[in-house]
Design a protein around this nucleic acid. Structure first.
Lengths: 207, 207
DNA sequence: GAGATTCTGGACTGATCTGTCAAGAATGTT
DNA sequence: AACATTCTTGACAGATCAGTCCAGAATCTC
């Protein structure tokens, strides 16, 4: 019936996403996007619409990925919930460094650049952060169910703290902070958890 | 000898700073800057150089201001050091909301937008954050001297945590977080301090 | 293999961008 | 009051921007 597109939409969106994350929204031109995707303007416009629409789709792709990864990383059996909370913080400290291009969290980046002026962007980012925060709360509650955390611990506030620490580590890393300092911050954040005696013993003498 | 400039350099830099903080570096045009300063292009270029130079001077003005304010807020007698630490966190949670235009921290914003590509910007921001972190360390040490904090508390790590929390609150607020959540995060961060018995009594029964 | 359909690339348009420049206005000095 | 100097404004140039469009290439169906 017709000629099929000669490119993979998902792959193109990832290249677009990388470019936006590197140069920002205003700092990225359509020529830049054509260069990294090796596509002509016509193909991009036909497949994704204008620049703003293209950005939204790239942002959505990032959000879906990060949600899938983090929700999976925070989900699991109750007796490992505490470990998952620790991993959440330490990986926040490491992921920006390990990322070969030093790109930070896309949601955080565009919360700062665009959320104040672009409702569609703000909405998507807010949903992304809410989902992650909810998963954190669930994980904290799981650790409580397992008897690792004091039942009086305010799960939502702790989740908020962890969210701020993750975003803050991201920003400070962009600003050239030392990885040791970020690890220190992550450790201190974990130390805020009101561990029960049982959990404390288990952690100091792991397996 | 000659005609004096008809504008106040400091005032113009503040108007420029506001515009950059609102729209970002790439998102701000010289026409925007001429509009907010009510100056012609020639005047701006003669007084401040090109766009990049103008931005650097506006950023420096912001950094100087924030350094003066925060270093003063963290400096004082040892017996109030703990209160100053608490104020640092709670004001981080409130300042973005109280700011009439909802502009966040300029250092954080441009750490995210520019630090990866602009060494001059990165350097200035890094110095800004280092100065504040050092002041936090000094304040923690002061609280230890006063017998409010456990002497074994890792001052530098705690300062790193507070820095990440402050930056994180800023980002999440831009993303539309509730102020109650940010207050919760600030409270939890404060709760990480290993208070001595004396300090705990003093806080629960203040004055 | 012919034809219909869609994809692709790049030229093009009009708007906007940064930075320059010169003419005129305003001020201090003599 | 006249002059020298500096400031100010807005027009201008060259580059770049987002978005449109069309001619030609590629593919599928029959």
């Amino acid at each position: 019936m017709s000629r099929p597109p000669g490119f993979d939409k998902t792959r193109v969106l990832e290249q677009v996403e990388r470019q936006f994350r590197k140069s920002g929204y205003s700092g990225t031109s359509l020529d830049d996007l054509c260069a990294v995707t090796r596509l002509g303007r016509g193909s991009l416009y036909a497949a994704f619409g204008d620049k703003h629409n293209l950005f939204l789709q790239a942002l959505d792709g990032y959000c879906r990925r990060s949600e899938a990864i983090l929700l999976a990383a925070l989900d699991g059996p109750d007796d490992e919930a505490l470990d998952r909370l620790r991993s959440f913080l330490t990986s926040a400290a490491h992921i920006v460094f390990s990322d070969s291009d030093g790109l930070g969290c896309m949601a955080g980046k565009f919360a700062v650049e665009l959320a104040g002026q672009d409702d569609a962007v703000a909405l998507r980012i807010k949903r992304n952060l809410s989902l992650i925060q909810d998963a954190l709360v669930a994980c904290i509650v799981a650790a409580q169910r397992n008897g690792d955390l004091d039942l009086a611990a305010p799960a939502r506030d702790i989740a908020s703290l962890f969210m701020t620490v993750a975003r803050g580590i991201d920003v400070l890393t962009q600003a050239g902070a030392e990885i040791a300092d970020m690890e220190g911050a992550a450790d201190r954040a974990f130390a805020i958890l009101p561990l029960t005696e049982a959990a404390r013993r288990r952690l100091t003498v792991p397996a």
